[in-house]
């Protein structure tokens, strides 16, 4: 799929999936999920080289690790609509006996998930290990990871950021969802992280910014540029400037929808703003 309109339809359906999943169980994290809908859709539909089916080792294909596991609704929707498991299974999000746990896990064997995440700050280290394994295996495919910006307050990230550059892990593209929001408010109010671009650069990374992180064309361009920077001795970071809650007007730009589900009326509003495209589950 390379047509922007087709991809936009995919994203719109993902948005519907996100709010419907969260609404049904009255729990989950719609804000960050909506903000990353375009990014994960472009990544899985266009950018990543993926094999048919799923195996844990993922040899001879690109890998993706979600570090900010709370945005599981968007991850599950994109995985299902990319063929990893039946779309109808989105109906089981957060329910008892489901493979779609509140935060993603390998424990129930959900295809597409290679590590548990949710306790923040661990995904970059895991991605580094997988990138090292690819090098040992002579596998030239890439490893992608996604991180919340607030998540970078966890110290383990900086151990990993230091390691990645020092050890020249240049088969890795790590994206930071720079929406400036976290549960307690704006990141600059909770714990300002300063200039993250300069920080990554100072640690020895190649860094590029995607100014409009909810614009499909910009994401496509940014990811392709990032790919062209791999294999040159440096890890690559993307600062993805997204808007939390993007695509649902009353959720946009506010931390208040970080972990709150819409009620019936709010759901209808959200769905009206994102008309069905590929078919609801």
């Amino acid at each position: 799929m390379s047509d922007t309109q087709q991809l936009q339809d995919f994203v719109t359906q993902v948005r519907r999936d996100i709010v419907r999943q969260v609404h049904k169980v009255n729990s989950g994290h719609p804000g960050g999920s909506l903000g990353c809908a375009e990014f994960l859709s472009v990544l899985y539909q266009e950018v990543m080289h993926r094999k048919e089916g799923f195996d844990m080792d993922g040899i001879d294909e690109d890998l993706f690790f979600l570090s900010n596991g709370h945005i599981s609704p968007v991850f599950y929707s994109v995985l299902a609509r990319s063929g990893y498991f039946p779309v109808e299974e989105l109906n089981t999000f957060r329910l008892i006996d489901s493979r779609l746990q509140g935060h993603p896990t390998t424990h129930e064997g959900l295809p597409g998930v290679r590590i548990a995440s949710g306790s923040l700050g661990q995904g970059l280290s895991v991605a580094l290990g997988a990138a090292n394994a690819k090098k040992l295996n002579g596998d030239s495919h890439l490893v992608y990871s996604l991180h919340g910006d607030g998540e970078l307050q966890e110290g383990q990230n900086w151990e990993a950021i230091m390691y990645a550059a020092a050890k020249k892990i240049d088969n890795l593209i790590s994206t930071v969802d720079r929406n400036y929001q976290q549960i307690d408010g704006c990141t600059d109010d909770v714990l300002p992280m300063g200039n993250l671009v300069e920080k990554f650069k100072a640690f020895g990374w190649e860094v590029l910014e995607i100014e409009k992180g909810n614009d499909i064309d910009q994401i496509r361009e940014g990811l392709n540029k990032a790919k062209s920077l791999t294999g040159k001795g440096k890890p690559v970071a993307i600062m993805l400037n997204t808007e939390m809650g993007h695509g649902v007007d009353f959720m946009m730009g506010s931390h208040k929808w970080h972990g709150v589900a819409p009620n019936d009326e709010q759901l209808e509003k959200a769905l009206a703003q994102n008309p069905e495209t590929l078919g609801d589950y």
Partner: peptide
């Protein structure tokens, strides 16, 4: 280096690839 948390995560990632 002196970074045990990162070490555990890298170890977990290395298993992905056998």
């Amino acid at each position: 280096g002196i970074a045990e948390a990162n070490m555990m995560g890298i170890a977990a990632g290395l298993t992905i690839g056998g």
